[in-house]
């Protein structure tokens, strides 16, 4: 098991280097059209002295590989540069936004787990029933829905229609993280539902197919032969096997949400990491953009590693190695 952990950690290093290389190349002079100094300062005109200063500080006149090395070493020390628009270190900006995205992602994951897993189990256990068909169809639909559109629809419905219909008694907040009218937790409902929608569909599908596969195995027959009830067979024997890939998916999905929530965050004006990066693109604040992306990638990689490790821990075949005589 320890060997497995070490091996995975080792594998991560070249990937991480690859990522930094890719990002570096994207902003490196020569590849990106335009003036590298402009990448740091934005569009405003600057004095010669300032230009010289910047060139010096960022080593822009150095050969590429030196610049890359500078980039990586800074990165490892936690220095992602400064946002020119705001004059603050990039790391600080994101440290601020990170908890917001975290809150959103957690809420979404909870929804995903509760609804997705139960839907998947029921669907598998009552195969071909109305419920099964319903789940299968609605998951296909949810997977095809553009997340941002769903968000807008929810806003229209819960924010406006409900307001009208219930004479302003029941409706939900549709933007931002907090407001005077609503408790903070109310604000997270619609965005979390939106963010969770597609993933819930996937979770239900995976859970269903894993359960079906598990229920078709020989050890299920053995369990019945021992006199176990249907409930015990389903929840004690089949579920434990079927859960493993689902747990893996949820874990990876959580990582993806951390960086991929940008659409939801934009629609609901949720001040998270993704939205920050997107706004920075609009402002051409490249240090923020690149810094944000690398932060997100690191988070995703760490989470993926944890997911891999949990898979190894859950699966006895990996945890306890091979055959003994």
């Amino acid at each position: 098991m320890l060997k497995y952990v070490l091996r995975r950690l080792l594998q991560m290093i070249p990937v991480f280097l690859g990522v930094t290389l890719l990002l570096f190349m994207l902003r490196a002079p020569g590849i990106l059209p335009g003036d590298p100094v402009r990448m740091i300062t934005g569009e405003r005109p600057i004095s010669e002295a300032l230009r010289a200063q910047i060139v010096e500080k960022h080593g822009l006149d150095q050969p590429l590989h030196t610049q890359y090395w500078m980039y990586v070493t800074n990165l490892v020390q936690g220095d992602l540069g400064e946002s020119y628009q705001r004059g603050r270190p990039v790391v600080d900006i994101f440290a601020e936004k990170f908890p917001n995205t975290l809150r959103l992602a957690l809420a979404a994951i909870i929804i995903e787990i509760l609804i997705g897993i139960s839907a998947g189990i029921i669907s598998a256990v009552r195969q071909y029933s109305f419920w099964d068909v319903f789940v299968t169809l609605s998951t296909s639909v949810l997977v095809s829905v553009p997340v941002f559109w769903l968000g807008m629809l929810l806003q229209i419905f819960f924010g406006i229609q409900m307001k009208e219909w219930t004479n302003e008694t029941f409706f939900l907040p549709i933007s931002g993280m907090s407001s005077a009218q609503f408790p903070d937790w109310a604000h997270v409902i619609l965005p979390a539902l939106t963010l969770a929608s597609v993933s819930t569909a996937y979770v239900a599908r995976i859970m269903r197919s894993q359960m079906l596969e598990a229920l078709g195995q020989d050890y299920i027959r053995t369990a019945y032969a021992k006199g176990l009830s249907r409930r015990a067979v389903t929840f004690r024997h089949a579920l434990k096997n079927a859960m493993i890939p689902v747990v893996t998916f949820v874990g990876i999905d959580f990582g993806a949400m951390m960086g991929g929530a940008i659409l939801t965050e934009t629609v609901f004006s949720w001040p998270g990491v993704g939205r920050e990066i997107f706004l920075a693109v609009g402002q051409r604040d490249w240090p923020v953009v690149m810094g944000g992306v690398i932060i997100v990638v690191i988070i995703v990689m760490v989470i993926n590693l944890l997911v891999d490790l949990s898979y190894a821990a859950l699966n006895p075949r990996i945890r306890y190695g091979g055959e003994a005589k």
């Binding site: 990522v19 993704g274 990066i277 995703v300």
Partner: peptide, 10 residues
């Protein structure tokens, strides 16, 4: 390693 939409934006 990159979240899809973020990479697309970048």
């Amino acid at each position: 390693a990159f979240p899809y939409i973020l990479f697309a934006i970048a």
